[in-house]
């Protein structure tokens, strides 16, 4: 049995939530540079110029990439041979966010109630997903995600007979209808299968997969490629002004489902796809 102090979890979250908001994976900024070269549309080129400079300023001057530092989603993976010591984990995770958002001068964007809408003042609560696995691992992925792109996400309960063509249309329609709202260039996460809540979870989890890789399942890899091509043919372009770079990646996750169901969900991320991960 391995013992982990919940105070250590809190401290790590406080530190890394700040880092997540000022710096993204280098692969993303490299993709901007590549797109800048390949874009022919002058306004699209101008947008990439600004994005490249923005990410540089954010990192060197410690200013959040985007003012919407999001509602935090947290994926916590716990090995069954791990035990925890100290105050309740849930409480310490939220405390980590509270400290991180205060010390990092990040925006507090959470309201206490969907109708009464009073700001909680500390960006909590985060949405936390726990997964129990074998062994003694402990891993956390912190995802501060803005509302502009989250609001453009969608779910549908299709008919099994609909199959891949309707799934494809559903995803492409969601991106077309969203147009510039979710701040393209985008990353697209798609979930297929499971049930109503599982498919939404899969779509968000798909955004954590490396955007430049493809599924090991051949039909899913093909779906990822086809969707990326179709989306980039929409001529939405960065910020919706036209261009060939509407999405930089599409990833798909699937799960077994009921004989009568074909759930599908699409979770859209803006270019500021902020993830950070740690293990203890």
């Amino acid at each position: 049995m391995r013992i982990i102090k919940t105070a250590d979890i809190r401290d790590k979250i406080a530190q890394l939530s700040q880092q997540a908001c000022i710096k993204v994976d280098k692969k993303i900024t490299d993709a901007f540079a590549k797109s800048y070269e390949s874009e022919k549309n002058p306004v699209a080129k101008y947008v990439f110029e600004q994005l490249i400079e923005n990410y540089k300023i954010a990192e060197t001057e410690n200013i959040p990439i985007c003012q919407d530092t999001g509602m935090v989603t947290m994926f916590v993976t716990i090995g069954q041979d791990v035990a925890f010591k100290g105050e309740a984990m849930e409480k310490m995770i939220q405390e980590g966010i509270r400290i991180g958002y205060r010390e990092g001068f990040l925006r507090k964007s959470i309201v206490n109630d969907p109708i009464e809408r009073v700001n909680t003042g500390d960006n909590t609560p985060a949405v936390i997903h726990y997964e129990l696995v074998e062994g003694d691992v402990f891993n956390v992925v912190i995802v501060p995600k803005g509302a502009g792109c989250e609001n453009m996400s969608r779910i549908a309960m299709l008919k099994p007979a609909d199959g891949l063509p309707v799934i494809e249309k559903f995803v492409v329609d969601a991106v077309r209808d969203a147009w510039a709202n979710p701040c393209p260039p985008l990353f697209i996460g798609v979930g297929i299968g499971g049930n109503f809540e599982k498919v939404a979870f899969l779509a968000k989890k798909a955004l954590l997969l490396p955007f430049d890789e493809r599924s090991e399942t051949p039909y899913i890899a093909k779906l990822e490629n086809d969707l990326l091509d179709e989306i980039n043919d929409l001529d939405i372009g960065p910020q919706g002004f036209g261009g060939q770079t509407t999405a930089l990646g599409v990833r798909v996750l699937s799960y077994p489902t009921h004989i009568a169901s074909l759930p599908v969900a699409v979770n859209i991320s803006c270019h500021a796809m902020r993830h950070i991960e740690f293990s203890l």
């Binding site: 994005l51 954010a58 200013i63 990439i65 507090k108 803006c270």
Partner: peptide, 26 residues
């Protein structure tokens, strides 16, 4: 303005004054 370019845009703001609804924070 370019969405998600908040760091760059902040550098072009030279003065700031809250003039109403301070209770709304951001």
């Amino acid at each position: 303005a370019v969405g998600g370019a908040g760091a760059l845009l902040s550098k072009r703001i030279r003065s700031v004054k809250i003039i109403a609804f301070e209770d709304l924070g951001a």
